[in-house]
Write a protein that binds this DNA or RNA. Structure first.
Lengths: 341, 341
DNA sequence: CTGTTAGCGCTTTCAG
DNA sequence: CTGAAAGCGCTAACAG
């Protein structure tokens, strides 16, 4: 025996049909009001709106999504949440989505393309309107789905490569290169690098490569180089600078892959009585507020994380269909001279 | 004329029916394999799995959600993403959700209950399995929906109040009170407070109230108090300490509502040649890593943000139905003595 | 500007 | 352990 209609439905959850009945219109008319789509007489709209308010109607997005084969969900895949960089990106995305009907679903990949692929596939089950992810490198399977899906795609942070649809970011190689040029020009000659395990972070590697290229051009090279296993952190930066100076006492500047670690470097200097810039240049990456609030503002490169997220989401909203032309947006970066290099 | 069946469907998007046909079973059997639910013969399962792999089948969660009136979405409403505290909470939630089928949908309320209400209602349209939000204060409408909804609810950060279902966090009043007792015991008597606009942040206010209560008990009071408009930041903390010392030069300790601002205070001390602790105690809240990496580790209270998020999500997953008893989990906090107070 | 009809892809219920 | 039938709540495509 077939179950009775609505047998398992929560009696106090009104549906669009209830709204329509109360307003004395058809379902589809009520639907048009809810979605603000199509021509509706003001009087009709008012009646439907009143019915919605009276019943406390909440649309069922699953039903809408099924019927229209599309959703208001935007999948966001980020490498990490520990690093403030990605919350900043997410903040930008969220800002662009406020006042729109779109909602971000977020996943964290731990910089692992296989995890990225797995999460991507599970997100696609929601028929998202768009997918945002970091970087231009994905597994072949992921790339295939991104290429062929009926959704917009934005690849963030990096623009050195061939995007699926939209890329928003900066050239990390160039940033590393400019770091090298800048520091050479300021008179530094004996370079050290205090990084983290690079396998996981394409962009840190690109900056590192750019830095080395600039040094090579100037007839220089990295005299010393240390890396921590595991995630980067301020305390790691502090210990790493101590270690690198023990091995190579003659350095006159040390470059870090990010501000967190560079601040650890500054803290080591304070602790060890080393005067930043005069005795040892310290250079970071990201341009975090806290680095600029220090007594000696950190010398670094300002990446525009919030802007990257915001620009990407805005671009994605411009058109539901993927345009014929790919878009690459370079948000650039600023060298912050600061007081530590 | 009615449209043809599947007329607008992407031809290369296989459905469960396609999988079933290829595997030579009925739809519902294929569905059981996909959901790992109900008894299935191993041989049947294997055939279905092979068909899924061959077709590259991705389930349509909207259809599933509609049919089962439930979803694998977990709504997460956070006050902010600027403050590292909430990305930490989110990280905890995400950690608990890894390896489960649940996916977080996130919204940002800007500490505004009306925005919280609006986002909550739009999230409920997805029939989430659970809702996670911050604090115990919501609009009456939001509270009504939370009470009556068919989903689990976790209210995070704060446990001083009456939760809807589960509360996970700590007593902020108590933390403020303990801060006061701790500092009085360490010999401080002339207290200043350098805060931010309190209207927006219930928990900072509770700590402030607790601090004042402890001082009152000791026959003391806040001699000076300054607040910044706008969001808290390190640079704001730095400027604020300068301002408060100008107005009340005799202070021997200044309490900040969080570590970000307290670090700004330290930076002002370094800049102005004031020795933290000896000449002026500085006390924060949160126990951020960066504060502990400083040459003088910040004196502060460690809040367990990651643990709060993780515990809440784990608890929520324990049972789909809301239990008769409410649960309050106190994750506590640690006083970090540090070197600045 | 409004309504009719069919169906989105899946899961529930109950029977075998 | 497997299947048949019905329907979740909404919207596309037309016609009026």
């Amino acid at each position: 025996m077939p179950r009775k209609r609505n047998a398992h439905r929560n009696a106090d959850t009104p549906t669009l049909a209830d709204v329509a009945r109360l307003a004395g219109v058809s379902d589809i008319t009520a639907s048009r009001v809810v979605r603000s789509k199509g021509p509706i007489a003001d009087a009709t709209r008012a009646r439907v709106l009143a019915a919605i308010a009276e019943l406390g109607y909440i649309p069922n997005r699953a039903a809408g999504s099924l019927a229209s084969s599309g959703s208001t969900l935007m999948s966001v895949l980020l490498p990490s949440l520990s690093n403030i960089v990605f919350p900043d990106v997410l903040r930008g995305i969220h800002t662009a989505l406020t006042e729109t009907a779109f909602q971000p679903v977020i996943g964290v990949t731990d910089y692992d393309p296989l995890i990225e692929e797995r999460i991507l596939l599970s997100f696609l089950a929601w028929q998202p309107a768009a997918v945002i992810l970091a970087g231009l490198h994905h597994t072949p399977t992921a790339r295939r789905h991104l290429e062929h899906g009926r959704f917009r795609v934005a690849e963030l942070m990096d623009i050195d490569g061939d995007p699926v649809d939209i890329a928003v970011g900066m050239s990390h190689w160039q940033a590393g290169y400019d770091t090298g040029r800048h520091l050479v020009q300021r008179g530094y000659r004996r370079f050290g690098y205090a990084g983290h395990s690079i396998a996981s972070d394409d962009r840190a590697r690109a900056r590192y490569d750019g830095l080395r290229a600039a040094l090579k051009e100037a007839g220089l090279l990295l005299i010393a180089e240390e890396r921590v296993q595991g995630p980067s952190s301020t305390i790691a930066g502090r210990h790493l600078l101590e270690a690198i100076l023990r091995k190579a006492p003659g350095l006159d500047v040390v470059v870090f892959p990010n501000d967190d670690m560079a601040m650890g470097g500054i803290f080591h200097c304070i602790h060890a009585g080393i005067t930043p810039k005069e005795q040892l240049g310290i250079f970071g990456f990201n341009g975090l507020d806290i680095g600029q609030a220090m007594p000696l503002p950190l010398s670094t490169i300002l990446s525009k994380r919030f802007l990257i997220g915001k620009t990407a989401a805005e671009k994605l909203l411009e058109s539901r269909e993927r345009p014929a032309e790919k878009t690459i947006i370079n948000t650039g970066y600023d060298i912050i001279v600061g007081a530590t290099a």
